[in-house]
């Protein structure tokens, strides 16, 4: 292919026999006519890539858009590189070094993408990334599908708080099969948690807010009109969650503070670093659902006074 093209290239030597008369004033020789032809091909390709999305939309085939967009971009790039930049006429190490740079970028893409694109795995989770994806707009709302796709990653398919991403979170996601939870939960608390996230309750910041996701319209971004859809959808989802509720016992366990999540922070200070330490101490690896005693310092651990001193120290270190 390269040689055939080089031949044409050479054919365009010096005369101007091939240049159409109308363009003689503008294009001085066949060489320039060759460039002009290339430009016309590029224009044609551009038009195809421009109308591609319209065809794709009309036929409901997104693949057409992708092919016309990126396939044609590659063809156009090839034409520019070959016919305008004359890459193939240079010694071959020139394209080799450019190709090497491209290979390194591909390497970068494929070895970074697993971390940036994916938000959960077998034993790990990228909660921040996942919560963003989880709150993407939902077009056709089905409580079962939403539970599986958006909730079960943390709360588990059975609602036990043991989803793959949930195992890495402290405090642990709520276990909906635990009686202790239902002793304190009510409809409003659940609705607030779903619509405005755990932060609205002063609980885990890993529980995302779904208000925008449930909203009508394009969702996300700037079009957050107030509508009734989020409320209705939340009701459906709460009904779905209620199916996990265990049957009430004859004598309910007396549970003073029985929510296995972080207590509300009274002061509105910006998320201090200490919070996590306290949360770890208090709720570390206790499986969700059991009645958790108030976070008392372990007997062998540092004393209360020492903890306070450390907290004060860290505070000083952060805000000095």
């Amino acid at each position: 292919m390269a040689s055939a093209d080089a031949a044409t290239h050479d054919d365009h030597g010096h005369g101007n026999g091939k240049v159409p008369g109308a363009l003689r004033g503008f294009l001085k020789d066949d060489h320039e006519w060759f460039y002009f032809q290339t430009w016309m091909i590029l224009t044609g390709l551009f038009i195809i890539s421009y109308i591609g999305p319209f065809i794709g939309e009309a036929l409901h085939m997104f693949a057409i858009t992708m092919v016309t967009a990126f396939g044609i971009a590659v063809v156009k790039a090839g034409l520019v590189i070959k016919r305008f930049m004359h890459l193939m006429d240079e010694p071959k190490f020139i394209w080799q070094m450019n190709a090497t740079a491209l290979v390194f970028i591909l390497l970068f893409f494929f070895w970074v993408a697993p971390d940036v694109m994916s938000h959960e795995g077998a034993n790990w989770g990228n909660q921040a990334g996942a919560s963003i994806t989880m709150t993407t707009h939902i077009e056709d709302f089905d409580p079962d599908v939403v539970w599986t796709e958006r909730c079960a990653t943390c709360h588990g398919e059975e609602g036990r708080g043991d989803g793959p991403a949930g195992t890495a979170i402290y405090p642990r996601p709520t276990d909906f099969t635990s009686r202790a939870y239902w002793a304190t939960a009510d409809h409003d608390i659940m609705a607030t948690a779903i619509l405005d996230g755990g932060v609205a309750l002063g609980r885990s910041r890993y529980m995302p807010a779904f208000r925008t996701a449930f909203a009508a319209g394009h969702g996300g971004g700037h079009e957050g009109e107030v509508d009734t859809l989020p409320g209705e959808r939340t009701e459906q989802l709460i009904a779905r969650i209620m199916t996990f509720r265990p049957p009430p016992e004859a004598a309910p366990a007396p549970a003073p503070v029985a929510v296995p999540t972080r207590e509300p922070t009274p002061t509105p200070t910006p998320e201090p670093v200490i919070d996590d330490t306290v949360a770890l101490d208090g709720y570390g690896l206790i499986p969700g659902g059991e009645v958790v005693p108030a976070p008392a310092p372990a007997p062998t651990g540092p004393s209360e006074a020492e903890l306070a001193a450390r907290a004060q120290y860290i505070q000083g270190r952060v805000f000095n």
Partner: peptide, 22 residues
């Protein structure tokens, strides 16, 4: 490599965030 790094970052975000289509 400058544009490649930038566009690679963009593409992996774009695939990972379907909501950007909006």
């Amino acid at each position: 490599v400058i544009f490649g790094g930038l566009l690679a970052s963009y593409v992996m975000h774009r695939i990972g965030h379907p909501e950007w289509a909006a």
